[in-house]
Design a binder for these strands. Structure first.
Lengths: 245, 245
DNA sequence: ACGTAACCGCGTACAACGTACCCAGTGGAG
DNA sequence: CTCCACTGGGTACGTTGTACGCGGTTACGT
């Protein structure tokens, strides 16, 4: 079986039996790549740049990782490992899911580039798997696996969707290389024209509202999350839903 | 004001006053790009390939579009135009939002590559704007603009999240260039190893369940959607929520 | 003990990408 | 009629992922 026969990186053994000892490691490479992506975006994490970061030649990385795409998968799973769900399930499903949602959102905000990796879904890395076990273990005793999948998907969608919105403008500013105030100034004429045209009353409302003070992002998130959890509670058998207060 | 001063493509006039008549148009270029992306993925829609598709030289495209990134924005807005919301708001908010969700999902399934464009959010193209007006017009009479934004975001998140999952495996198959059955065969050993290890009981449940006949994707989607709409109904003032049946 | 096969790090090289720059031709404004 | 802002597009540059092959290193079979 040649290397090309592995579909999955996780099947490919990191260390072979024979030959000289490797100077680097997958974990080290992944770590460097994550560091670069955090600081300068995913597109800055090129093979050459990562190699330079750990003091290796560019092509050396290919001794550890079959391709850049696979490395990105490694990075994504590395990120899943940041979501700490020790002690879950605890018995209080609402607390558990809130904890998960908070951790997931915090992780996305630390590594906004995660939104740019299309989830080639069945990349069940070890951290991802552990997460699934813990997270879905929360509702597993009370609903069918099908329903569990649906509910977890709903929760995930909520978190990802809202956090994508939080991230997008910040990422746009970073990509354009402009300062935030300069970027705002540049955007102003267009928005102003739309508002003045009078054809977009609701858009205008949104813009006007955006100028006013608001709930913090955190509070907005938690508020919406409560609604999603209520929605999940409604789908649970009444004996398991617990107090709705 | 030089071209570089435009932050927004939508500000940049398509046709100048003087000079020879252009042979092509933004719409034509965008159309070609969408066609290629539909057939072979977004990464196949390179400037050279798009130019070849319409019979132009590669560099000619830059007479119409400042950069590839901007072209992708054009493509994204072109997709928004496929979402037909004529007659919305109709007075029946539940029907309207269901219609929107169905249209949005169908559009994603027609153009899976949309998931790969990071929404540099404030790219308010004309189709996007029209959509906002119609969609948010549905709940505008009954909730505050803030709440409306939150609820619409929740609906969007649900649709995007579930459709992303639907798409991911198909896209993975396409990217790998393998046939679906071959891809399944390649994935099998890894999944099998995980199941046999006994360390992942819930993952195992998922795999086992996946082998059984299920609700169609459409039915799953509609089922989850009803739950999301229930959730929205709960957030509406009681006079506007309508019959919950 | 010693060849040999498997592995290491990595330099070179190539195809494909986005796009800066330049040029000759074109057609409306003065 | 004269400009010159515009057109299409060829050439070229820097950057990307990565195939290939080299010389050195290590563990195993004999």
């Amino acid at each position: 079986m040649t290397d090309a026969e592995y579909v999955n990186i996780w099947m490919r053994p990191e260390r072979p039996a024979r030959g000289p000892k490797p100077l680097y490691s997958r974990a080290q490479i992944t770590e460097a790549a994550v560091r670069i992506a955090d600081a300068e975006g995913l597109e800055a994490a090129t093979m050459r740049r990562i190699a330079a970061e750990i003091g290796a030649g560019a092509m050396s990385l290919y001794r550890y990782v079959p391709s850049r795409d696979n490395l990105v998968e490694l990075m994504a799973d590395r990120l899943m490992g940041e979501i700490d769900l020790t002690g879950v399930p605890s018995g209080d499903w609402r607390a558990d899911l809130t904890r998960y949602a908070d951790e997931l959102r915090a992780m996305w905000l630390r590594h906004p580039w995660i939104g740019g990796v299309q989830r080639s879904l069945p990349s069940f890395g070890p951290n991802q798997l552990l997460l699934i076990e813990r997270l879905m273990g929360v509702l597993d005793p009370v609903v069918s696996i099908d329903e569990n999948l649906g509910l977890v998907a709903m929760l995930n969608s909520y978190v990802e969707g809202t956090v994508r919105e939080e991230i997008s403008s910040a990422e746009e500013v970073r990509r354009s290389g402009l300062s935030e105030s300069e970027w705002m100034a540049r955007s102003y004429p267009y928005v102003d024209r739309l508002v003045k045209s009078g054809e977009y009353p609701i858009f205008t409302k949104i813009v006007m509202e955006a100028r006013q003070p608001h709930l913090s992002r955190d509070d907005q998130f938690r508020y919406g999350l409560q609604r999603v959890l209520d929605c999940i509670a409604a789908a649970l058998p009444s004996t398991a839903a617990g107090p709705q207060d």
